[in-house]
Amino acid sequence: MSVEAPAVAPVTRLIDQDRVDRYAVAARDPNPIHTDAEFAAASDFGGRIAHGMLVLALVSEAMAGAFGRRWAESGSLRVRLRAPAVQPLKVTAHAEPRGLADGVASYDVRCETADGAVLLSGTAAVALGDA
């Protein structure tokens, strides 16, 4: 009997202003730090940053890729957003198995840039049920 959580394939995606603009509309997030170049230039970041939820979406995508509908039925996430995603940048979401207990698979998750900067990190879990 395996006691390891199933492997989850990483997801890599380019996050650029076009994607951020489309996400701002789709998620109805009006914060100008993501979309207004003049506003963002005057901020501490010096430019527009991607939504933390857009970066987190890569983790959700990786988990859904491994578990499908079960992710929507029993998944959970707990992350800290550690650094602003000043785009454009290529981001990879990783989910490393932590263990399997009582039918729940748990993972350490993180999103990092191509040069290894960690944008977010935390944990994810999903119930495997009877399958």
Binding site: S43, G52, L56, W71, A72, E73, L77
Partner: peptide, 22 residues
């Protein structure tokens, strides 16, 4: 975000979700 005016410099620093059914 549509109801809450965030001050300049606000940062989203943590997020938790539990999905209970599709």
């Amino acid at each position: 975000m549509e109801q809450l005016a965030l001050p300049p410099g606000a940062l989203h620093t943590g997020q938790e979700f539990a999905f209970l059914r599709a």
